[in-house]
Design a protein around this nucleic acid. Structure first.
Lengths: 239, 239
DNA sequence: CGAAGCATTGAAGTGCGTCAACAATCGTGG
DNA sequence: CCACGATTGTTGACGCACTTCAATGCTTCG
């Protein structure tokens, strides 16, 4: 179950069997949450963090008027609120986009593990830095890319990230978001997100039905998105 | 000189005199760079990071077509490429917006210091997490706020951050960016950034001349920006 | 089976972009 | 210290990508 998290880590760095045991031992319990459940409210005090084992989570920030911006989508293997280990409260909400299974990791155990294995401290620091890189790429999208290029970019990124944890299959993946949620990722209205999605279909780049995305023309999609995965830091790192 | 960096750290957590000595000892040299100089190119291998002692730096990402998005502005006291310690290369460029003084900190010394003082490891991890929070707030701005609210928000944030390191004075601060650079922070064209700035002036909220910003109506500006500084994590933290 | 949420479409509006010109300021060399 | 080209700031006219509003069918699920 937590194997998916180790799979993600091992893609980017070596994890010794001793370190692996320490990580496995840090999990206190496994929880389930339902779709649409608010998992963590921004501002609330945190004494544990969660590893996403299965399902999708969104981190988002709202304006007083209700407008919502998703700051990052999280998939199986991610450690969505690991930054809460040092920050002790989040500045963004975490919501379940689908039913999810979560491994709860108390901060005191993260502290112990990273004291004992200082390299793991760097591995997890690295991990939050990659999340920050994903968020920077989002800023680039929101600030400079057109709606269609932005949407294409998101689908490309998710394909790569899902592939790392073995959740992508022959050019497609399960995609549980509604068009409203998708629009909140992209800084668009639902109506325009809908039209943009249709344009991607019309160009023969992808299909999206029954919550499943199929990429029909990966080259074309990547080209439209100007997608370059180097910001995902997929190569092996010495830490 | 590096005192400004310690000032920033001490605002958010305790730093013992032993830890302070370790930090001061980690600096290998002090460099100067001129305005408009490309300080770090994204992708290049890094074996040291820099603390900004004086001046302004911008982190930015470009699209193939030349469109640029600034992902974060950095001021005195910041550690702009600290994430390079784990990532070993950046996904964004770092450019000098003004003449700057930089303290160079070799990664091997960061490694030593954080091995010896594991709490300092968490302090710096915390620090990159705050940068990530600033970037999330930018995503919220780019995705959901109007041009004028976005610009107001940026000026509010910079006031608070500069105040922490004692670089803001009676409701104003030195602001070295050109309108082009400002527009690249906000995802706007220069022309529209210019008109938006004029609108802020016209409403009596601020003045900007000779590279100096004066806030005439802080309440009004914060209200327009819907500014809430909690994402800056200014309170004292146990790490 | 009914209600609520979700996807889709059309028509009309607007915030911001584009293009183009010009004024003001800056930096540099003579 | 002035000359002058380059950069920066400003303004106007116009265009368009995306929003807004509103209506309609389609799912989904209690």
């Amino acid at each position: 179950m937590i194997t998916v998290h180790l799979k993600k880590l091992k893609r980017r760095t070596e994890i010794s069997s001793e370190e692996e045991r320490a990580i496995r031992g840090a999990v206190a319990e496994v929880r389930q949450v339902r779709a649409d459940e608010l998992v963590i409210r921004s501002g609330e005090y945190l004494s544990s963090s969660i590893i996403l084992l299965d399902g999708w989570l969104a981190r988002s920030k709202d304006l007083p008027g209700g407008e919502r911006q998703v700051t990052e989508l999280h998939i199986a293997g991610d450690f969505p609120d690991l930054h809460g280990f040092t920050l002790k409260r989040l500045d963004d909400d975490i919501t379940a986009l689908s039913d999810c299974r979560l491994a709860v990791v108390p901060h005191e155990r993260i502290l112990e593990v990273t004291q004992k294995f200082t390299r793991l401290g760097r591995v997890y620091w690295f991990s939050t830095n990659v999340d920050a890189a994903i968020q920077r790429e989002l800023s680039l999208s929101l600030g400079q890319r057109s709606a269609i290029s932005r949407m294409a970019h998101l689908f490309c990124e998710l394909y790569v990230r899902l592939d790392v944890v073995g959740r992508a299959s022959n050019n497609g993946y399960a995609f549980p978001l509604t068009q409203r949620e998708l629009s909140e990722c992209l800084g668009l209205t639902v109506v325009h997100a809908n039209r943009t999605l249709q344009e991607l279909r019309r160009r023969g780049l992808l299909e999206l039905e029954n919550r499943h995305l199929t990429i029909r023309d990966m080259r074309g999609l990547e080209g439209l998105a100007e997608f370059d995965p180097s910001y995902l830091y997929l190569e092996k790192h010495q830490l």
